[in-house]
Nucleic acid binder design. Structure first.
Lengths: 241, 241
DNA sequence: TCAATAGTGTCTTTGAGACACTATCCG
DNA sequence: CGGATAGTGTCTCAAAGACACTATTGA
């Protein structure tokens, strides 16, 4: 393509590589988990890393994130949102690599992992018990993702993305507690959720040891993935990396 | 550098260009203004665009933003924060260009513009009266920047970055009104600001027609650029592009 | 019946908003 | 003094939190 009148710029001749990395969260055994792949090749061979890879010339950044995620882990059809772009000059020993990080949330009941040729292993890890230091600056990216998740949790319905189709209010409360790292009052939680009017009674009940649980479904009407209510005031510690 | 074991990836051979674009806001004549440059060359020759340019291989993204901004407009020493990364495949007719956008805020009293060789003109425009459609997807970037500014205004001290060193509480109120596009109650505003304890009385007064104004300075102690108080509940319409 | 879990009601405190009031200058 | 601008006090109402209470099951 014609590039007349841009001759002054040196970087035209040397371009950084551009990758996407995805912080995929799910809930497993009542704990927040993140998806990691074990690297097969240098650099950081044998280390765990966030799934991700190079962007193709004819796909959008978000498409690249979806494609890489599916290729590397088999995970697809998920909630995805751009997180932050990391580009310190020496974050990758090979060359200058700028990485656009995404957050993804997958339902607790949709987890079919697949290992690609490019990695040794793919696994969910509790964010409380990571397998040592991650490759590159992926610890920073993960921390940034966690911050974002916590902060959006409080004024959006993001948390519903982590639940199975059908769930109880106390299970939802449990997610909030897990991610926020604090206990919430049961009564106030019920009130908030009910007032927000984002749940639909499925008519189903789940039997257990005590009183059966009412099972709900997330109302996917207005704006679909869009947040519908504010859980409580947003926190001040927004992402700033 | 060695790139062994990455031979599978096609994009190694064709990399996108990476640029930064900066949405610089200031306050002029009690109105929110944004800084634009008039392009000298194809594409979009003669159109107004956000300042920005290509990233060098050995600078961080933020450094690139500061450098480009100073080169193109002369503006320096400002508050800067990453906004969002735009990368639709055809957003630039020359080639695939991924742009990392930043927001910048400059004080009303620090405005010395300079036109570089690469552009015809550099000017502040009221966000209410833009000069037609901007180049590339810069209208979208600007809109995203405005959203972010509005949303952070309400729970951070970002607005102080737009003011001169010394200012009155009613001037601050005026900024909030301008950016939020609504009137605020004087009494409630005083209360909020006072309670937040982010201002320092300079001891100075400014005389005018009525009672003299008390002049304050922003407390730059804890965390410096960090937000210290929450103006009010965060809005729900966060950036999602 | 009790243990276990689900779900509701209600009191108190906090903070946002509306709005009336007081203060200090000039002429 | 009156006009103009700066700054304070106070009432009301809604939402957040604490916490005690009731409900429904199985054994």
């Amino acid at each position: 393509m014609d590039e007349q009148a841009e001759t002054y710029d040196p970087t035209r001749y040397e371009r950084p590589s551009v990758t996407v990395d995805v912080v995929v969260f799910t809930l497993q055994d009542h704990e927040l988990h993140v998806l990691l792949v074990k690297r097969k090749h240098w650099p950081y061979e044998g280390h765990w890393a966030l799934p991700g890879g190079f962007i193709n010339m004819n796909e959008s950044i978000e498409q690249a994130a979806r494609r890489e995620l599916e290729e590397e882990t088999g995970v697809r059809d998920i909630y995805l949102e751009q997180l932050y772009t990391f580009g310190e000059p020496r974050r990758d020993p090979r060359t200058r690599v700028i990485s656009i990080a995404y957050i993804a949330l997958v339902s607790a009941d949709k987890q079919t992992l697949r290992v690609s040729d490019e990695s040794i292993d793919v696994r969910w890890f509790s964010v409380q018990r990571l397998p040592g230091l991650l490759a590159f600056d992926h610890d920073l990216i993960l921390a940034t993702g966690l911050d974002r998740l916590r902060s959006k949790l409080e004024y959006t319905t993001l948390a519903f993305q982590l639940l199975p189709e059908v769930f109880s209010i106390l299970e939802l409360k449990y997610i909030y507690e897990q991610i926020l790292g604090e206990e919430l009052d049961k009564g106030n939680f019920y009130r908030k959720i009910k007032d927000a009017n984002v749940l639909e009674d499925t008519g189903m009940r789940r039997e257990g040891r005590g009183r059966p649980t009412t099972l709900y479904r997330f109302r996917r009407n207005r704006g679909d993935e869009q947040f519908v209510f504010r859980w409580r005031e947003a926190r001040v510690d927004e992402v700033e990396s």
